[in-house]
């Protein structure tokens, strides 16, 4: 009896330790970066351009936000649409198998290959040149598998009883999907979008091969630009300034947090507009 209790305590301790390591590592990274970056963080650094003796990162912040927005705007509808097809319409068979296989394979490809593809296809063949658009398109393709898989899971989790209830009221399949299934899946879609944002923001290889590394303000989506991650990479790799690198990293973390927050808000509004049609 006592032995069992000791065993139980040890097991519990191990699980606690695992959880502690995870949280501690994360906390350590965040605290380390912010603590190191904070010293260099000042309005001048954040809100000035990267030229004329100044080394501000405002252009990079803007480029990052643009790329993220653009990629999500492209990837989310396509991904959700594809997931809807796979879950709601596709009949089990070869085609469904093929599409599944393709998305899974896409998910496993290293990002540098997406970068090369984007460079050849969007930059060179389509002549978008190094631009935020090329970058966003490339990143969209990169995050599509994530969006599709996550949305698929969310759609599968919508109870059959919702669909039955709607169909039994005489709603068509499309009305049912739009009126009941999608709104219930919104949290899942949101997860997909947040995961994608994480990957987009953190991406370097695929971005500098397609969006370029120019440090000026992007004027339009056909302009080239440098995202925060790329900037960070350059700063660290060229050994320009580790203080700046840390400060940039801190800003990067804050930017991601802000974008996630905004996404949450937007999704809430989206859900409301889906479910209540009278406003």
């Amino acid at each position: 009896m006592k032995k069992r209790k000791i065993k139980e305590t040890i097991q519990k301790a191990v699980i606690w330790l695992c959880a502690f390591i995870t949280v501690a590592a994360l906390a350590w990274i965040v605290i380390y970066i912010i603590a190191n970056g904070l010293a260099h963080l000042n309005p001048d650094f954040i809100f000035s351009e990267y030229k004329g003796g100044k080394n501000g990162i405002l252009p990079m912040i803007l480029s990052t936000v643009y790329v993220v927005l653009l990629s999500v705007i492209i990837a989310a509808p396509i991904g959700v649409g594809a997931a809807l097809y796979l879950v709601e319409y596709a009949k089990p068979g070869k085609l469904l198998y093929l599409v599944r296989f393709a998305t899974e394979t896409l998910a496993g490809i290293p990002s540098i290959i997406y970068g090369l593809f984007g460079f050849i296809f969007f930059v060179t063949i389509l002549k978008f040149s190094f631009s935020l658009l090329s970058g966003a398109l490339t990143l969209s393709i990169m995050v599509l598998p994530t969006v599709i898989r996550t949305t698929e899971e969310a759609l599968k989790c919508v109870p059959v009883s919702y669909r039955e209830g709607s169909l039994a009221l005489g709603a068509t399949k499309f009305q049912t999907i739009r009126g009941v299934v999608l709104p219930s899946a919104i949290p899942g879609v949101l997860t997909a979008v947040i995961l994608s944002i994480g990957r987009i923001v953190g991406e370097t290889a695929a971005v500098y091969l397609t969006a370029g590394m120019v440090t000026r303000f992007p004027g339009s989506m056909m302009d080239s630009g440098r995202t925060l991650s790329v900037h960070l990479y350059v700063l660290a790799k060229e050994g320009i300034s580790f203080e700046e690198a840390f400060a940039t990293a801190a800003i990067l973390i804050i930017t991601v947090a802000l974008i996630n927050l905004a996404t949450n808000k937007a999704a809430g509004r989206l859900k409301r507009s889906f479910t209540s049609q009278d406003n």
Partner: peptide, 14 residues
């Protein structure tokens, strides 16, 4: 199996 929406919207759905 009410839909995950308001009471009003549930009844108005049909």
């Amino acid at each position: 199996n009410p839909f995950p929406m308001s009471i009003y919207d549930n009844v108005a759905y049909g």
